[in-house]
Design a protein around this nucleic acid. Structure first.
Lengths: 238, 238
DNA sequence: CGGCAGTTTGATGTTACTCAATTTAAGTGG
DNA sequence: CCACTTAAATTGAGTAACATCAAACTGCCG
């Protein structure tokens, strides 16, 4: 997580995350297009931003709000592959692939920055720092996917949900100061269910149990953690 | 999958897959070390070749036989993340990371080629073709991981096993000519179980059903497919 | 022949799903 | 501020899917 730097088109925000380094203003931009190669957009909650098999000339970076990336089955089932937080690229692969292999939806209202793929790739070729940043980003995605495979394949429902909480807590805390273990948490139980491969009804039961045992509470769009060691004991992979 | 070319240290084999392009003899090798930057090794079936948190200066390529990459939980559960076939890198991430985040085991007797990471990265920096090949490899891994997440999170036991069969059939067929839908298949039911998140007992039952319904048969280290359309209907993601 | 690893089968237990009803929360418009 | 509406969460009862335990069976190798 090299230098922290402002996104050109949302100058009020600083990111130290995956995609941010790609968005840096670069004086030696190969194609000298000023800021034309980036554009910025606000999207309301619930809107689908990308669809499987859709082609795009742009690489997208989430600048504000929460989104999620998912894979939709023909019969209606869907798997949420990951949640997108400010500073995240939709996917590292999108720098090389013009076709989405997944859907992306806005979970809250969000701001999205689109960057021309050609320009991003030109920078990549000219700047080893950017290449390394992207490699790190891709590796982080690969490792997250490996862990998630383990979670879905091996853990019980309670363990899965605890894992998801811990994962998101870590990612949220990396982006904003958390006081008294109270994390902004815009997910509905349906999202949790689709992410960990359970039904919403069962998610509700498991969360009720976690609440009764005084471990976490989920309300008002916040996740409050009362017994972090116990949550870790349940949901850590090692 | 660009040019198909021989691995320096196993000259009798040709690969068109992921890691192979990295192993090409390159006359303008930056550090002019001859073939010293590669070494070759044979490993018996069942041996663990890489362990989580182990550090290595080398990037590994599987040249012959089958292996698998897995994540081990402290209590003994393990998730097989993917199977390694000839031509596969252990992981695209290994080009950038010196520490394994996973275990790798030989499923059959295998041949492994190790390449010095520094050398591989030097080539990467000097040759955009190699970079693109690696990017493709990483993207393929990311997409496979996305699909596997979906499989583990959403599919029934029968669907999962059918998916695994179809996936491996495709990968095997890309490496050797298959006649009469008879695929070499060295996995034990335990491996299938660990890959799709089921118990070996349940895997046995599901496979028995598939056999009784005349869809596939598994014996003598071969997978025979009698009703491919039906297998596809069960195990395809779309 | 015995021994071992892998598979199959049966009986039983547990986890999580389904269906349906109820409660809570969050708007919305009067 | 209060009905009314709607989405989300909770709860209960019944069921299906998969796990667990244990025994029997198979093929293989020494």
């Amino acid at each position: 997580m090299q230098s922290v730097s402002p996104c050109v088109t949302c100058p009020h925000r600083d990111f130290g995350f995956c995609g941010a380094i790609l968005a840096n203003r670069n004086e030696e931009s190969p194609s000298h297009q000023g800021a034309n190669w980036q554009h910025h957009r606000t999207v309301p909650a619930g809107r689908e931003i990308a669809t499987r098999n859709q082609v795009s000339e742009d690489v997208f970076l989430l600048c504000g709000g929460w989104g999620f990336r998912s894979f939709q089955l023909p019969d209606g089932r869907r798997q949420i592959l990951n949640f997108l937080l400010p500073g995240d690229l939709f996917s590292a692969a999108s720098v090389f692939e013009e076709r989405f292999q997944y859907s992306v939806k806005a979970l809250t209202a969000i701001q999205v920055s689109g960057m021309q793929r050609a320009e991003v790739r030109a920078r990549l070729a000219n700047n080893p720092d950017i290449l390394n940043a992207l490699a790190k980003c891709g590796i982080a995605e690969l490792e997250a996917a490996d862990r998630m495979q383990t979670v879905l394949g091996q853990l019980s429902s309670e363990e899965r949900i605890a894992y998801l909480f811990l994962l998101l807590m870590e990612r949220i805390a990396a982006r904003s100061v958390i006081r008294e273990q109270r994390y902004p948490f815009p997910l509905r139980q349906q999202h949790i269910a689709d992410a960990v491969g359970l039904t919403p009804v069962h998610v509700s039961r498991v969360i009720s149990l976690l609440r009764e045992r005084g471990i976490v509470e989920l309300s008002d769009g916040f996740l409050k953690v009362f017994n972090l060691p116990e949550l870790r004991r349940i949901g850590s992979l090692n």
